[in-house]
């Protein structure tokens, strides 16, 4: 396929960079939701560690799990930050695509209008822009692939968090006089992890 027909294909494709920008905004909003929830796990875990200390010997296992949950929340926040950096980078590529798509549309109209002199230059400019649009699309596809990888990594971490929350529930049952408050905290962990899972599912669906 030569450059010109490639350019025509780009123009006729159903790629709408404006929609990509809207998608990035939605992704960023979901990331913010996950980061906020991860931060709340961190605070909850800190409280749980104090509670486990007060419960003493009966809540040793609970204390260990709370520490792990705290580490989990920090790790998850790091992963989400990486995701956010990637989406910010994608904004640059998509913005460039919006600009290029407009220029390509204008050059296409110029080709359609025809020129008495400089036709080769018009064709060359069109082909150059079409190639840049193609390049940007490929770069965006690569970023989306990496984004899905990071998202899968985040999902795995959340599954681990779910296991930790369920284990905390079991440990809470052995909390003696502190069993009820420990159970409350572990149930809260579980609900929060579920909420993060929901946000990640929403992110994957965007």
């Amino acid at each position: 396929m030569n450059d010109l027909s490639e350019g025509s294909r780009v123009l006729q494709s159903d790629a709408h960079p404006e929609n990509d920008l809207q998608r990035i905004v939605l992704v960023n909003e979901q990331i913010k939701a996950v980061v906020a929830t991860a931060f709340s796990i961190n605070l909850m875990a800190l409280n749980a560690i104090f509670l486990a200390k007060r419960a003493g010997q009966a809540a040793l296992g609970f204390g260990v799990l709370s520490n792990e949950l705290r580490t989990f929340s920090v790790d998850l926040a790091d992963v989400m930050k990486a995701l956010r950096d990637m989406t910010s980078d994608s904004v640059n590529v998509v913005s460039d695509q919006v600009r290029l798509a407009r220029t390509l549309g204008i050059l296409s109209r110029l080709k359609a209008a025809g020129v008495a002199r400089g036709q080769q230059a018009v064709d060359a400019a069109f082909a150059r822009h079409a190639a840049r649009v193609e390049r940007d699309e490929a770069a965006l596809r690569e970023r989306q692939r990496k984004l899905r990888q990071v998202l899968a990594d985040a999902r795995q971490r959340v599954e681990l968090g779910g296991v930790l929350a369920r284990s905390a529930k079991i440990e809470a049952a052995y909390g003696g006089g502190f069993a009820q408050p420990l159970m409350q905290v572990s149930s809260e962990f579980d609900r929060t992890i579920q909420a993060i899972r929901g946000s990640l599912d929403a992110l994957a669906a965007i």
Partner: peptide
Amino acid sequence: GMEIFPAVFSAISEHVDPR
């Protein structure tokens, strides 16, 4: 403006090479 570029470029090309 950007939007009228094709019309201007094309009209000029009837008389001189816009490049």
